[in-house]
Design a protein around this nucleic acid. Structure first.
Lengths: 197, 197
DNA sequence: CAATTCACATACCGAGGGTATGTGAAACCG
DNA sequence: CGGTTTCACATACCCTCGGTATGTGAATTG
């Protein structure tokens, strides 16, 4: 059972990421002691610092993984449609549901912007999921489905709307809240289409 | 110049709030040492704990004050119009500009939700400003200006959209970004009006 | 004027992030 | 195959900082 060093290293890193994700999601970044994460991973703080350099470094790696997952989930939902407008709607709906995962809610939507700083959070979010949104909007503008306009402000508005709504939905016990939010969001999106008059 | 005890107490409390607001806005909650706030206010930690019970307690009081200010600014902007639809637009535009104040940006929009917890932050935000938004939407629904629909999901979506946009605007150096965001937001709001077909 | 209140100051504790250094097994090299 | 080096951690330690327990002197009260 003598694992090679690289294997052992990778295994330790993976376990730290997994346990960190669990603890961060459950208690929030600032209420989690790095020593506890390490212990629950069967190692000590030394290992964590060796791999990630700091508590924030471990957190950043966890954030990156969770963001990748969310991005893929949204992209997969969109890919099941052909019409770009339907792709946008499907992606938005998929995102609204992601807040139900405590890791997404607590880590991505709540702690990440303050722990990593808003700029870095935005850059990572951009790369993982907001990029899809921006590209979808560009496509719809090119095809004339929505009015010609700058994409970035619109992306920020919609991204923020969905982030906050996802947070709210995760705390709401109204079973109709999700459907109602989807409908409200679609009404807002309708405003982007050229006026029929 | 022997101030009465009540006066001295009030003065100390006020200074702590002012200095705390400055420090929290500049460095963020977790990078601010309570002892530093106290020292910059000419007292020690003991005074701060006597008045606010904890570091989070001082922060909560600062948040409440800043939220009140924002709420009043938004309400004032809306009050300069008569038409409810124009009131909504004016309130939204006013809110988008508030992020330029570091106290609003860092304290209200970034730190408050994680430090106080999302539930408490939402409750305070509701009372200070989101309430205005919800009531404006209700009015517009009653008058038939926008389609009949549940108000709460829509409020969350719009509140989140404006929060995020305000954060982005505060970091953007594009002088046209504000106007563009206002226009995009108005397009989204247009989607709430009954379809003309 | 004595007793009491209270708005702080002072001293201290414990938790936790970070660092410097030790260590033993795997990898490398002749 | 034996010595050397590397490196993935463990151990011990420091320092900051939030919180608490207690002291104190001036304002207040009776």
């Amino acid at each position: 059972m003598t694992a090679t060093r690289a294997e052992q290293r990778a295994a330790t890193r993976r376990t730290l990421l997994d346990r960190g994700r669990l603890r961060f999601a459950a208690d929030g970044y600032h209420d989690v002691a790095l020593a506890d994460v390490a212990q629950s991973a069967g190692v000590t703080k030394g290992a964590a610092y060796h791999h990630f350099g700091s508590k924030a470094g471990l957190f950043r790696s966890v954030v990156a993984e969770v963001q990748q997952e969310v991005g893929q989930r949204v992209a997969a939902a969109a890919a099941r449609h052909d019409d770009p407008w339907e792709q946008l709607r499907a992606g938005c709906r998929a995102f609204l549901s992601t807040g139900s995962d405590p890791a997404v809610r607590r880590i991505l939507l709540l702690d990440a912007p303050t722990v990593l700083g808003w700029d870095q959070w935005r850059a990572m979010d951009e790369q993982a999921s907001a990029r899809h949104l921006a590209e979808a909007l560009k496509t719809l503008i090119t095809s004339g489905t929505i009015t010609e306009q700058p994409v970035e402000p619109l992306t920020r508005l919609l991204s923020g709307a969905m982030n906050e709504a996802a947070l709210w939905l995760a705390r709401s016990d109204d079973p109709e809240a999700l459907t109602q939010t989807e409908r409200a969001l679609e009404r807002l999106l309708d405003g982007l289409r050229p006026r029929s008059d």
